[in-house]
Design a binder for these strands. Sequence first.
DNA 1: ACTGGCACTCACTCGTCGTGACTGCCAATT
DNA 2: AATTGGCAGTCACGACGAGTGAGTGCCAGT
Lengths: 346, 346
Amino acid sequence: MVSERGLDVLRAIVQDYVASREPVGSKTIVDRYSFGVSAATIRNDMAALEEDGLIAAPHTSSGRIPTDKGYRMFVDHLAEVRALTTAQRLAIRTFLEEGADLDDVLARTVRMLAQLTNQVALVQIPVVPRSYVRHVELVLLSPTRLLVVLITDAGRVDQRVVELPHADQEQHAVDDAVLAEVRTRVNARLVGRLIADVAPELDALAEELPPARRVVVERIAAALAATVDDRRQDRLLLAGTANLARTERDFPGSILPVLETIEEQVVLMRLFREMELDDRGVSVSIGRENPLVGLAETSILAGGYRSSAGEVARIGVLGPTRMDYSGNIAAVRAVARYLSKLLGEE
Amino acid sequence: MVSERGLDVLRAIVQDYVASREPVGSKTIVDRYSFGVSAATIRNDMAALEEDGLIAAPHTSSGRIPTDKGYRMFVDHLAEVRALTTAQRLAIRTFLEEGADLDDVLARTVRMLAQLTNQVALVQIPVVPRSYVRHVELVLLSPTRLLVVLITDAGRVDQRVVELPHADQEQHAVDDAVLAEVRTRVNARLVGRLIADVAPELDALAEELPPARRVVVERIAAALAATVDDRRQDRLLLAGTANLARTERDFPGSILPVLETIEEQVVLMRLFREMELDDRGVSVSIGRENPLVGLAETSILAGGYRSSAGEVARIGVLGPTRMDYSGNIAAVRAVARYLSKLLGEE
DNA sequence: ACTGGCACTCACTCGTCGTGACTGCCAATT
DNA sequence: AATTGGCAGTCACGACGAGTGAGTGCCAGT
C-alpha cells in the first residue's frame, strides 16, 4: 500500500527525473527534498511504489524512474499547474495579436506553442459544419478547366478545379457569356443556403437547364459536393519537429517511429480528436496508454479552443513521456484560452 | 594529377560508399569492380585522388570516403542519370492523376517524391506575378470583422480578415447594405486590373467616397495590398522528415541542426529558389557548398516545373551528402516533368 | 606503368577489473 | 508500528590493455 508520504516521494521522483534524466535514488531524495526522514525510510516507500507499478528500476541497482502509470498518477493527483511567467503571457499576447486571417493566426499559434513548450505542437484547423453559402465564383482557367470557389459566411474559402468536357463537342463549348449566366443562376440558387444543401439544389438546377448548360452545372455540383466532403475531414498544423531531435535521448530506440507517426497526419488527427478533455480543459495521454505503437514513448497533451463559429477544435503538444507536465499543461491551457478569446467575436 | 582511371576509381568509391556506408579500400575495389589492375595500382590512384581533395580517409588506416568535392565531381562528370523503373513511372502517374486542385496535386507530389527518394522532399507553391483581378468578395464575420477574398484569373484565391473601426462611432457602422454598395463599387473598379494596380485604384476610390465609407475602403485596400505582398513570398511544402531520422547515421553530429534549418522555411525557401538549374534541368548543392551551416552535411537537389500560368517553381529533395545522386536526380526530373505536363494546359 | 611484398598504423573488440551508486534486509530504536 | 543505521550484495559503467585485421605508403623489381 502506498502511504501519503509515498505519493510525495513519487512527486519528487517525477520532478527530479524530469529535470535531470537520471534515475533517482533514495539518497538523492533525502538530500534534495526535506522529508525529515532517513534514506532507509524513503527506500521502504519506494519499494511500495514499485510494488504498485508506479516506478521501476532500469537495472537492479540503480535509482528509479516513473512508469507510465506513475506519470499518470502524477498528472492526475500530484501536479499543480504552474502559472505561466508574465514574460510568457506577454509573448503569447503580442505574438498572436499580429495575425491577419485565421490560417495565419493558427500558423503563428502552433509555432509559438512549440517554442513555449519545447515540444512538437499541434493545432487542428477547425471545421465549420453548419455554415451558409455566401458566394460562388467561377473562373475559367482554360477552355476546359474551370475554377470553382466557394465562400461561406464563417469566413472559409474553398476552391477546386473542374475539368470540363472537351470543346470539340460544339454544344458543350463554354465561353465567358455562358459562364456568366451559369454564375448568376448558381448564385441565385445557392446564396444563403446551408452548405449541406448545395448538392441537391444544384441537381435541381441542372434539371431546369438545356443540356448544353446542364453538363457544366453538373460538374460544378460534383466539385462543390467534393469540397463540402473535404472540409469534414479537418487538417492539422504541426510545428517544432526539431524539438524531437533535441529530446532524442528520451527515446530509447529512435525518434524514427515518432516522426513516421506524426507524418501520418490522418491517424494522428483521429487520436488527437478523440481524446476527452477533463475538468481542467486538458487531456493527457501517456506512453503506452496511447493506441499508436509509434507513440509508445510519447505523451500527448490536448486542449480545446473555440473558433469564431463556436465549435471546439484541438490544440496540443506531443513529446517524450519524460516531459514537464505542469508547465506544458499550463502552456496549452493558456494558449487555448488566448486563442478562443482572439477568435471569439466579443 | 588524376588519371582517367582515377576518375573511374572515384566513381567506384562513391557508388560503393553510398551503397554500404563503409569507407572503401583498394582491396574492396579490385574485388568488386573489374579494373584489371592490382590493388597497389588502385592505391596509387587513390593517393592522387586524395591529393586533389576528392576523397579523404577518416582515420590514417582505413578506406576512403568521398569529400564534398568528390561528390561534386561525381555529380558533374561521372554519374549517369538512371532511368526510373517502369513501376516508379507508373506510381508517379497514378499518384498524380487523382489530384483535385492545385494545392492537392502539390501535396500529393511532395509526399510521393519523398517516398520515391527516401529523402525529405520540397515543393514550392508557385506564385503568379502577373495576374488579373477576377472578383473581390466581402463577407461580414461580425460587426467589426470583415473577410476580404481576392480571386484572380490564374486560379489563386487569397483571403484576409480586416478589423473594422468600432461601431460605437455611429458614422462608421457597417451593415449589409453598406457592404453591398462597397462590394459593387470595389468590383467595378478592380475587376480586370492587374493585381499590382489594386492598391492605387482603391486609394483613388476612397477619395471619391464620403468619409463614412472611406474608412472601410481604406482598410480593404490595406488588406489587399498586404495580400498581394504575401503572395510574393511563396510557401514551401515539405514531406518525408522521417527519412532524416532513417538516415541519421549519416549525420555525425545529430539531425537537430538539419531539422531546425528545415523548419525555418523562409531561409530554406530562399536558398532553394536561388539554386540555378544546369542544362539537365537540375541543380545540386553539396554539403558545405551550401550557405546554411545547418545543412553542411546535406545535399539539396532542385528541379523546376511550370505551373499553369507558365512561371517556374521549384521541386526538390534534401538528404545526407551520402545519397544516391543518380537515382534522386532521375526522380526529381521525372516528377518535375510529370507535374509540368499535368499542370500545363494542353 | 604496374606489381608484389612488407612494415606500419590505428580503430575496434573483447575480456578483466575496480569503482560507486544503488538496493534489500535485518536488528535495534523510538 | 514506524523509523533507522548498518551491511552485504548487485550490477552498470569506465578504464586499461592486448590482440586483430583492414588498409595504407613505399620501394624495388618487372
